[in-house]
Design a protein around this nucleic acid. Structure first.
Lengths: 388, 388
DNA sequence: ATGATTTGTTGTGAGATACAACATAAAGCA
DNA sequence: TGCTTTATGTTGTATCTCACAACAAATCAT
């Protein structure tokens, strides 16, 4: 919105955005509930909803049989035909999905590749999936944009992938490539940051305005912050790189990597190693850890938990969040004894800051990144349903 | 503002707030410049300014002789008679000032005490200063609120001082006490966080939307964050406690305190000790450091700088700020070789994140905390000039 | 069936800003 | 000095959006 706040048009757009945002986040809502949530007048909400309906963004459904006194209120739902393309390129596959503004995922493909997907290839895969869907099942859908979750540093201003170590992408203008191949407006974000957004809006962090999200992946530790209810990008969009931090390590014996950073010490590879696995997905690792009763495993889990606790404390002292959400192998690690981790954080962090703090594991499953990617694809539309 | 956004009244209030905010932050501005800055219509700005004038918040002055073609535009300035009381209780004195919404400080008293000031005493000192000023020089002033900068943890919701170690205040309802003694609405904040706000609005961080401020005081290291242009409080308001963090210490020899936190390692006391001073103000310490040429001094400065650099890196990785501002003895420490500190941060932080980063020393002098305290006292008025 | 309750619908009113036309004050220039 | 140019204040009108009130509709309770 080109700073239309303060004008009439601005008010109207904000109100449309508010209504659309509520049904997007909370799902179908009666008009009566919307009036309550927005604080606007009944008649105003009616006209806003009518406008959104005319633009094909929401649909009005028959009232729910609520068994309550009074005239039933029609239910306003996001129009499931409004879709975004969510993309997650990884070393061994590119996952592409169609995600509805209603949260549904009517189409999803994981395209395995036997080589690292190149930027051009990724853009082409997205375009061909889009074409296929447009020609078949999703014929009557309306695709409003593309969102990419990239495992690397993404410059917010232009969607340039500065460096994605595992994809071996370096200064790749992926946003421009995908915009060209699809003709759709495209947004790009760091995968862990998008995970944070997804957990904040639809997962373990629903309704929490100040949270920290840390994700443990095969390649390292990333994350994202939500402050004042908004995702934090920082000046260029690189915020959230917890894995590169250097937390204090109280016991010298706990250090494995000289001059190492958090993700050198707290790592999935070390956990796999100690349980004697070469590789494996998250449940496999969790099962192996649960089954193992060797002291070596307990030691390694303890060591990593101690270091993780210190890293979390640093974040808690600085940000005073009300919630920390852990995903990936950090969830596996933490879930073994969530109470102990909370206690360790409470012991080291400022007492006051840890009072209101809870630590949870991520709630969304494998679709987390796709949901986050779709969210940034929807962002413009949600912020200003009239566009421009 | 009780969520009046989205209504007409809301628009009007927002626009009043916008105009008042601009003249508050940037000083006197011509009406023509205000129209450009707000994007509103000339006639609209005229009526907004008239309303603010009627409410005694701004004054219109004769146009500046600008030597430019065209009809001269009257200059809108904040009314210097609109004042806040800013208070900073310390172990040896309570500083109280009247701070104008124009940024002026027409009155300032440092009341030395030979004992720790108690909460009640502080509240009484504020009330009596207020009475004196109201009876004399500032007879025609309008006091809109009190802001306190407290060296301790302050709960944002109710202005309760949870713990101020040096004042020995514990769970002190200082906001209520001062509101009672003065009859004025009162706001309370942590001193370093208020320093961050002041530097952001009027000091080294002017115009910077993502910054980190660290202050080195006699008692430890505190700070504050600005994210998306807004100060970060966190869930309870305790954010910014960098001093309690545990940064990694690469060289074991650099560690002085087992299990120590940042402010145990990087401390003013250690600097004073190494130059052989018992105590001393900031210039004294800076001079002593500059004059010393013993290797012990250089070693200690180097050691503290190394640890500080790691702590800053942790913040940079997570927040990707465009600016770090250092105050207090951290400024003294950094100023000895700002380039080296920047290099050390660049060497350890993610390369991309340190690209757009600059490190500066604080620009505001001894009035920093008073300006920050006044700012939170003015906050309600600035957010909604009509009140309620 | 009747009343109570809640909410949609409709028409009117109010408030704030945008816009256009005109007025005004300064600088530039002949 | 006086005219032109330029930029801005001033005034009155138009427009837009939301609030409000009155009425209608749909459900539950008796």
């Amino acid at each position: 919105m080109t700073d239309r706040a303060g004008t009439f048009d601005g008010v109207h757009r904000r109100n449309l955005s508010k209504v659309l945002g509520h049904v997007h986040l909370d799902g179908p809502l009666s008009r009566a509930r919307l009036t309550a949530m927005t604080g606007l007048n009944r008649s105003t909400v009616a006209s806003l909803v009518a406008e959104l309906t005319a633009r094909g963004l929401v649909i009005e459904q028959a009232p729910d049989p609520t068994n309550r006194v009074g005239r039933p209120s029609p239910v306003v739902a996001p129009d499931p035909r409004v879709l975004a393309i969510a993309v997650n390129p990884e070393v061994d596959a590119v996952t592409i999905a169609a995600v509805g503004i209603d949260g549904g995922i009517p189409a999803r493909e994981r395209i395995e590749v036997d080589h690292l997907p190149s930027p051009d290839e990724t853009a082409e895969l997205v375009a061909s999936a889009l074409d296929r869907w447009r020609a078949a099942d999703l014929r009557d859908a309306r695709f409003v944009g593309v969102g990419l979750a990239v495992p690397g540093l993404v410059r917010a201003s232009d969607g340039l992938v500065r460096f994605a170590p595992h994809l071996l992408w370096s200064d790749v203008p992926i946003r421009a490539l995908v915009e060209e191949s699809t003709g759709l407006p495209t947004a790009v974000g760091n995968d862990a940051s998008l995970g944070a957004i997804a957990e904040h809006l639809f997962g373990a962090g629903r309704g929490v305005d100040d949270m920290v999200y840390l994700n443990g992946g095969a390649s390292g530790i990333g994350g994202g912050l939500i402050v004042h209810g908004r995702p934090v990008g920082g000046s260029a969009g690189y915020a959230g790189e917890f894995g590169q931090n250097r937390p204090g390590i109280a016991a010298p014996d706990d250090r494995r990597a000289a001059e190492g950073v958090l993700e050198d010490e707290v790592s999935r590879a070390r956990l796999l190693e100690v349980v004697g696995l070469d590789h494996g997905d998250e449940p496999t690792l969790a099962d192996a850890l649960a089954a193992a009763d060797s002291p070596a495993v307990a030691d390694e889990v303890g060591r990593q938990s101690r270091i993780l606790a210190t890293a979390l404390c640093n974040a808690v002292n600085v940000l005073n969040p009300s919630l920390i959400v852990l995903g990936g192998f950090l969830a596996t690690l933490a879930e073994r004894d969530l109470g102990a981790l909370e206690a360790a954080v409470a012991a080291q962090a400022m007492p006051a800051a840890s009072e209101g703090l809870s630590i949870r594991v991520a709630a969304l499953g494998e679709n987390r990144l796709l949901i986050g990617a779709a969210e940034i694809a929807f962002a413009d539309l949600l912020a200003d349903p009239l566009g421009r």
